[in-house]
Amino acid sequence: MNGEGRAGTLRQGAQAALPIVLGYLSIGFAAGVVQRASGLSVAEVMLMSLLLYAGSAQFVVAGLIAAASHAQLPVLAIVATVFLVNLRHVLLSAALAPHFTSVSAGRNALLGLQLTDETFVVAWTALVRGALPQRGRAAWMAGLNLSAYFSWAAANLAGALASGLVADARASGFDFALPAMFAALLVLQFTAPQSTSPEAAGQQAAQRARMRGMLVVALIAAALAVGIALLIPGQWNILLATLVAATLALVLDKAWTSARTS
């Protein structure tokens, strides 16, 4: 691929990040305010933003540091929590990996470094809709990642600097941008244009069955995530709900397949 082509793909990826940027600017600002208020310096907030680069984990860490204001800092608890909160990325990374086999390990490591729920969701939607080019896939992903990354950092910085001026950034409702985006992308998953290959007609029944399977999985995951959140304290719900629902899907998938072929 020539240089211009790669730059173009990078730009396409950056443009695909637009809804993420909107969400990150608002929720990142809130994260900056909350972290600074927990007692971290602006420099430390920025280190967290640039190195940890994980919204929910940063909120949780700020909460734990603030709660420990007079006691010994529970380092082990904080590290374990961050690990737990980010463990769901294993599943996202694993889901993307088969589509990035042509990308070198070094580049994949860099792309993985900036993997978030949001970039995953946008990248996956692009994959499903066939909008992700086979060539220059790494460049597209890098464009997506970098715009998300820098908007997050900029918003964290602004929030950290403005902390003290803002009473309660989270209560303002800005953090809703991300659930709204997930809702949009969930719908897009189900309305994705079907493949137009010659065999497509024969595959339509299978496609419909898969859609139905996805819908069942989505409902199970939603119920589990809410139920676990209410029952188990901490951040287990997303990981557990995803794991259980995807595993159940496998069982159902098998049952449906054998029911069709028998």
Partner: peptide, 11 residues
């Protein structure tokens, strides 16, 4: 099936 599960779990 991970994407179909993770979106609703987040939302």
């Amino acid at each position: 099936y991970v994407p179909a599960a993770v979106f609703p779990a987040l939302i």
